[in-house]
Structure formats: C-alpha cells, structure tokens
Design a protein around this nucleic acid. Structure first.
Lengths: 246, 246
DNA sequence: GCAAAAGTGTTGTCCTTACACCCATGC
DNA sequence: GCATGGGTGTAAGGACAACACTTTTGC
C-alpha cells in the first residue's frame, strides 16, 4: 500500500508543474525498430537478414534494425531502416509488436518495436550488401542474434493469420500473376496444401481478380492466364467481419 | 545516396566497440504505457478513465497510463499501472499497439505502448479514486486528452475483432452467467443485434459451456440457466484457423 | 393475467470439401 | 509423345440465416 500512497501523492502534486518538466522527469531509454522482411522466391518463404555487427553474436544472423532517432516516429524509422539497409523504398510496412524484455540486448536495456513487410524479392534487387544481407528460408533458421528468433517466430505466426484476412500476399507477387503463383504463396506461408480447384473458385468468386488477357510465356507446360488484383474493388467491398468462431 | 554511405560507414566501424558503449550512443526517450480497460455494466460497454493531471487538458478524460521504469518491461509496467490506479490485480492484459507521433504529448516526445483489458466492472470495486476514476460509455466520448481518443478508437476496433476469435468476453462476466448475459456482451461490443436462437445454437455446438444446474434468481421473468465456460477444453481444442476470407 | 425473457427446431441457402478428366505447351 | 501443370463441374455435407410459439417467473 505504500507504493500506492506514494504514487498518488506524486501524481496529485504535478498539476501545476510545467508539463515539459514532467516529461523531462520520466526515465528514458533507447528505442529501436526491427524489420521482418518476408519475401517469396523459388516457391518458398524467405526472410531478409544480415550478419550481426556485435562480437557477442559473431556469425549470427539478425533482423534489419536500427535506433529510433529522437525526432522520428516509429513508422518513419522502420522505413528509413529499410531504405538504408536495402535500398528498398515505399513498401508496405506494418507494426506488429513491441518487445521489451530487460535482458534482450547485451549492451543494456533496449526496447524494440517490430515491423513486418512482404515484398517480391525479384522486384527489389538488394542495392546494398553490407554485412552479407541475404534471404533465408524462414523454416530453417535455428539460432539468431538477440531475441530475434523469438521475434521472427512471432511475426511468422502473425503473417499466417494476417494473410487470411487481408490480401497482403499480393505484395509478394509481380503485378501480373498466375493463379498457380498465388496458390504457391499461400501454400508456402501457411505450410499446407490447398485444393487447386477450390482455391481458384474461391478467388474467382471474390471478384477481385482482373483478367489481363495475357498468358504466361516460356513455361514448360500449358501457360496459365495472368491476372491483376483489383485493389480498388477490394477497398470498396472489404469484409465487415462478423462471425464468432474460436 | 550520401545518407546510405554515411550509415554504412557508421555501422561497419562499430564491430570492435564495446556493446555497452554502442547502446549508450543511442538516443533515448521516455516511454509510457497506457491501459484501455473495458468493462461491461448496465448492458453497455464502458471504458475506465481518469481526469487528466495536466493544465493543458483541464477537465479532459484520459487513459490510465504512466512512465515505464528503467528496470521494468512493458507488461510489468501495464500491470503496475492497473494496480496503482485501480487496485485491480491479475487481470488479463494484452499489448495492442505502440503510438509514437512526435507531437502526441505537449511536454515533449513520449512514445506509448497501449494495452487493453476487459473486466467485469462489478467484480472489481475501484479501490482508488484519485482524479475521478470513472467508467464511461465507449460510444459517447467525443474529446479526450492527448491522442487518447484515437488510441481508444483503435483499441475498440481491435476489441471488436478480437472477441470474435477469442473468448475474451468471459472476463466481462461473472464465473456463472446466463446465455442472455453472454449475448448482451457481444451485442454491446459489436454494436449489433444477434439472433437469439442462432446465438445459443452456436455456443452450444462449440461445446465450451458447462451447465451448472443453477438458475438465475430474483429476475422478473422466467429464470435462465447459468453456465460456466470450460477454459480447459478451449485450450485443448482451440481453432487452427485456416480460411482465406477478405 | 400480464409483462418479460427463456427455451426450442426446421427449412432454405450458401459455402466448403472432395474428387477426375481433358488441354496446351516445351522438350 | 510425354511430362508438366492449366483449366473445369458436381455432389454431399456443414454452417448460417430467418423465423414463432410455448413456458416460467414476478408482480
């Protein structure tokens, strides 16, 4: 109860203090962002990593991250990291979670906010190749620097759920894509097989696919039709989700 | 491109520096947690707020929040806030999002991580009543201190989605509850009417309701059966969500 | 006996699943 | 011509939506 009393007293007396002083009295700590960049290539889900700078994590891989500057919000920091580290601009980034365990960084307390993104690894050649920036198969990583394995697992779970309610996956594909490609992405991310006919029916019935009247070329089998995704229609008609189900 | 070069240089030369120095070189900033405590009373959804301390927000309501201490992770901070401000212990708290706009606090830059919780307002009498701690109808708030209205709206959206895939709602009810109470909660949160027979069928078929063989008492109509929720069964059988739908 | 909510079942529609054959291309 | 994946339809089962009457209690 003494804690409570103390806290109450502190709070009540602050009313007249300058609000800048109040904020200045708060403890501060370093904040970073980490980006979990998912890509798709060779029919499997990849994640973009670099080798850690730190001797503590020699030869270990880690996420793309950096400090958050003092006049920069988290979204801006995440975008900056992506540009600085990969040369990739203007991709969809989504905040996933903030990790704050006290001992997660060997250099002291660092809180990190994690963003995830999906992008077509073929569209974006990696402009910058410091620290061996590389795509890694998501399922084969066993150890990483910091708590980045835990973060990656968290984001992978997030991604599996997210792609089922949002057409995120289209960021992994070129503008024009075949239904086979689309299905491959879902199968890779969800780590499951889907029935081809039902998958096609599902997407056809959603009405978000625009037939480009073009076909695949140079494939060693019957070429498939190429489609575009109708983002405008999607924006207009996206689902109002009501359905209790757990 | 000069930015990139600079950044690359900075990074590369840090390999041998002490990692503690590295972290010490990061800019630091104050971090807070804010708790969006949802409650249910009088058949409507409430949120727990206090009057702001700050003259800038005189007579405005705000969320329960506090600084994050330097040796405390975010979950601990959120729980502490709840105990200090309300006396309520050991409730389910879930991290929702981190807000970081530069100008969200008039006293300077403050980043805040927001947690949400649901609890039965009748179970927890508010032990501490500083700053007019009060339950407010969620839908009637127009203005709040800081960016707290925006945060509340975000959390309300989060909640509407979350209760459809997770039996969170049971935190709002006493251990034994009637199906009418359960339905009222869903209707209040989703802001919609549900068919009574279908609702009951749905829950009956999920198999998570335990009939207590008790009935409501002192009601002015035919008394309903009281049920408990079978959390063990739920843990064992909860859904592996696969179903693309957007 | 009246008000208020509990309790209960059926039908039609839609969505999901499972499943097999012919077709177009590269080699 | 053969290997590879493209393209297609149907039937059965399950989930969901719509809908009305009788029952039990307090007053």
């Amino acid at each position: 109860m003494s804690d409570l009393t103390k806290s109450t007293a502190t709070k009540s007396n602050l009313g007249n203090k300058n609000v800048v002083e109040l904020v200045a009295s708060y403890p501060t700590m370093p904040l970073t962002v980490d980006c979990v960049i998912f890509g798709f290539d060779d029919n499997s889900l990849k994640v973009l990593l670099i080798k850690s700078d730190l001797p503590q994590f020699y030869e270990k891989w880690c996420l793309l991250g950096d400090q958050v500057h003092s006049r920069e919000d988290l979204d801006a920091a995440a975008n900056r990291v992506l540009i600085e580290r990969t040369g990739i601009k203007k991709v969809y980034l989504e905040q996933v979670h903030t990790f704050s365990q006290l001992d997660r960084h060997p250099g002291g307390r660092v809180v990190t906010t994690v963003y995830a993104s999906l992008l077509n690894s073929k569209d974006h050649s990696l402009g910058i190749s410091e620290n061996e920036l590389k795509w890694h198969p998501v399922n084969k990583l066993v150890e990483m620097a910091f708590d980045h394995k835990e973060i990656l697992d968290f984001c992978y779970g997030w991604l599996q759920k997210r792609i089922q309610e949002h057409p995120l996956v289209l960021n992994l594909l070129p503008e024009k894509f075949s239904l086979r490609q689309l299905q491959n992405v879902y199968e890779a991310i969800l780590d499951t097989k889907l029935d081809r006919r039902n998958f096609r029916k599902k997407f056809a019935s959603m009405g978000f696919l625009i037939d480009t009247n073009e076909m695949e070329t140079h494939v060693t089998h019957r070429p498939g039709k190429l489609y575009k995704f109708d983002f405008d229609q999607y924006q207009k008609r996206k689902k109002n989700w009501v359905g209790i189900d757990f």
